[in-house]
Each structure stands twice: as structure tokens, then as C-alpha cells.
């Protein structure tokens, strides 16, 4: 059986700069990384592979050729194959079209029982890829935003948090699962494996033409207007003095504001 993990390359949210004067996000000099929730998804998939070596894990990404870097990282982590969907049409595609082309690639792979991805991309993500893919794959069930993912008896099960309650949610395969970040640290690749991933391993590049899908056929349904920045908060009041004095002043002030 095959598991496909969809990975996005994003700007590291911690390295982008926000320019208040220009009301814009400055991405120059920002680092590009594997979207962290996708890393957790990949990690969970590789755990399944460790438990059952007959499972083949395939990393899949989409976009400009430079996205290859995250796929090489996925190879270094232990994926069997890495596929990049890349051509001029794919780069221009929007969400509904993206789901179509990714689904076409997954269908071509055959025997894919589980598609995993992060619960959302931390840059401009909407968290809708999983459910959209499920429709394009032929109405597969979706486990949305789960952790503690398990594969047993042809079912995929995960812990789901919904409306302030926890549920164990389970669906028969084939299915789509979007994964939350959990406290367990995901693994990072060994240096030698990274070198290997660039020297020996191969990232397959597929085009939309080869898949027989035109991802730009669907019209762009929204237009971007502008960026809006949240208002800057007023600088706070620093309570001075020794710890005892500061504590007394603070409690008095909080009481005056009726918050305690």
C-alpha cells in the first residue's frame, strides 16, 4: 500500500518582516522551510512505514522548481519517492484547480490508500486542501485536524478535537487525513542523508500536460485587494520597584480595573 504526503514549501513565518509604514509583508531574505504541520504529517507516515515495511511513502509537492528542496529533505527523512508537480500552468493554478491536479497525480500512482497533509499551511493557507482533495479522489472520507493517528484493520483512526470535546474518529481506507502538530518532536534528517538526497536520489517532475489536467481551466474566483495590518497595541505600563512593591502595585491596579 502507498501513502502520499502532500508537502508545501512556505516562508518561515518567524523570518518574514512586517512593514507598518508600507502596510506590507516583506518576504525578502525570509527563509523557505517545509510547512511545519506537513512535517508532522510526514513524520506520522514514516512511523507507519517503520511499523510495516511494505508501506511505501511518497512525498508530493507542487510549484516552482525550487520547491525541490523540501522534497529532497523528505527523501533524506526516509521517503521512498518524491514527486514535484511543476510547470507554468500549475504555478498559476488556484485552490480548486490545485486539488484537481494533485488528485490526478495521486490517481496515477495507483494503490494509494492514505493521503496525508498538515492541517493547514502556516503562511497563507486556508486548511482546505485535504477536504477538497477528498472530493476529487472520489468522495473519500476525511479525518480533519487530528493527532495520534493510527492505522489498524484497514481503518485510519485519530484523536479529534471538536466543539470543546475530544473524539476518537475512525474511517475505512482509502481516506484523507490532515494532521495537527503534537508535542512529540518530529525527526530532522541526518547530514549524510541530506547529501545523499541531493547526490543519489531523484525527484520526479511531472507536468500537468502529462497528467492530462489543465489546472487553469477554472477561473480565478477571488481577487486580492489589499493587506490590512492589525492595529498596534499601546505600549504598556512597566511596574517599577522591588518584586514585593511591584506585586503590591500590580494587584492594586488590577483591582482598580476590576479584572480581579
Amino acid at each position: 500500500m502507498r501513502i502520499v504526503v502532500c508537502i508545501k514549501q512556505i516562508f518561515d513565518p518567524e523570518t518574514i518582516k512586517i512593514s507598518r509604514s508600507q502596510q506590507a509583508i516583506d518576504e525578502r531574505g525570509a527563509r523557505k522551510i517545509m510547512n511545519p504541520p506537513d512535517r508532522w504529517a510526514l513524520d506520522a507516515a514514516l512511523r507507519f512505514k517503520e511499523a510495516d515495511p511494505s508501506i511505501e511513502v511518497i512525498a508530493l509537492s507542487l510549484g516552482e522548481p525550487e520547491v525541490e528542496d523540501v522534497l529532497r529533505e523528505a527523501l533524506a527523512l526516509g521517503c521512498d519517492r518524491a514527486i514535484l508537480l511543476s510547470d507554468a500552468a500549475i504555478v498559476k493554478a488556484r485552490t480548486a484547480g490545485l486539488a484537481q491536479i494533485i488528485a490526478a497525480a495521486i490517481k496515477r500512482l495507483r494503490n494509494v490508500q492514505l493521503v496525508m497533509t498538515g492541517h493547514m499551511a502556516l503562511d497563507t493557507g486556508s486548511g482546505t486542501l485535504g477536504p477538497r482533495l477528498a472530493i476529487e479522489l472520489g468522495d473519500w472520507p476525511v479525518l480533519l485536524s487530528v493527532d495520534q493517528l493510527r492505522l489498524e484493520h484497514g481503518h485510519v483512526t485519530g484523536l479529534q478535537y471538536a466543539d470543546e470535546k475530544y473524539y476518537d474518529s475512525s474511517y475505512p481506507l482509502p481516506a484523507v487525513a490532515t494532521v495537527l502538530q503534537t508535542p512529540e518532536h518530529p525527526r530532522y534528517p541526518h547530514g549524510a542523508e541530506i547529501i545523499n538526497a541531493y547526490r543519489v536520489r531523484n525527484v520526479e517532475i511531472w507536468s500537468s500536460l502529462a497528467l492530462g489536467v489543465d489546472p487553469t481551466a477554472l477561473p480565478a474566483p477571488t481577487t486580492g485587494r489589499q493587506l490590512r495590518l492589525p492595529p498596534a497595541r499601546q505600549m504598556g505600563f512597566i511596574v517599577e520597584g522591588s518584586p514585593q512593591e511591584a506585586a503590591q502595585t500590580l494587584v492594586a491596579m488590577l483591582r482598580a480595573r476590576r479584572v480581579i
Binding site: I25, Q226, L229, P230
Partner: peptide, 10 residues
């Protein structure tokens, strides 16, 4: 976007 660092208006 970027987790509330900014809002994209569409």
C-alpha cells in the same frame, strides 16, 4: 495570513 500577522482582503 501568517497567523494573524496581517489580514488579506479578497
Amino acid at each position: 495570513i501568517y497567523h494573524g500577522a496581517a489580514y488579506r482582503v479578497v
